[in-house]
Amino acid sequence: MSEEAITLKHLTVAYQSVPVLWDVSLGFKKGKMTAIIGPNGAGKSTLIKAMLQLIKPLTGEVAFSLNDHQMAPYKEVKQQVAYVPQNSSVDWDFPTTVLDVVTMGRYGRLGWFKRAKKADKEIAAQQLAKVGMQTFADRQISQLSGGQRQRVFLARALAQEADIYLLDEPLAGVDMKTERIIMNLLHELVAEGKTVIVVHHDLQTVEEYFDEVVFINRSLMAAGSVSSAFTDKNIEETYRTDQNVGERSAQP
């Protein structure tokens, strides 16, 4: 049995009074590449955001286990957890350059008030080279294509030099070249012993890309290694019904 990097216990999340995630208990294996899959609106992004305390869960616990922490709350391990949001979440006309955005990945380690130093810029430039974007360093970010934006976001997360990487649909709407670059880098991270968790939408590539799979549709439908849990039965059950969790139990 391999260890768990993130352990969820009875995680329940609601927007206003509508439950989006119902009683999810789950462990993400350390040093593995895990896909979170499920239909649109199943609560995949919500799951990630709740793990990062970006949304306050109604109940439940999220605990992180790293080399020097065991079952620690998120706030103690923030610097070790990198997050790649969906790239539609920011204003790409913001007056800043590609290298600048990647350097932002260093800000957490710097802490309040300290400026980014030359070493930070160098690390940022290295990450930019890893995603094949070094020639774009001085470009304004609005000039990038969707795939290039996604690669910049990944480079920013890499610059954090974290142990756990959480990515929200990094392959949505990107070109083949970007997909290959991103997946190669994620596999490199796993080879270095890091934990990678990806919200994924393409069932065709799950077996090729991932070690572990988690099926979500409002509640946990199934989880396990791709070889054992990625079955037609689990896929069908997850995608078959619109799950309306909580409504029954909320009514007397």
């Binding site: 990062l52 305390q53 923030k78 957890v81 800000y107 957490g108 802490g111 920013r156």
Partner: peptide
């Protein structure tokens, strides 16, 4: 959102 995950 990213700023929050950086620990600020």
């Amino acid at each position: 959102v990213f700023t929050q995950t950086l620990g600020f």
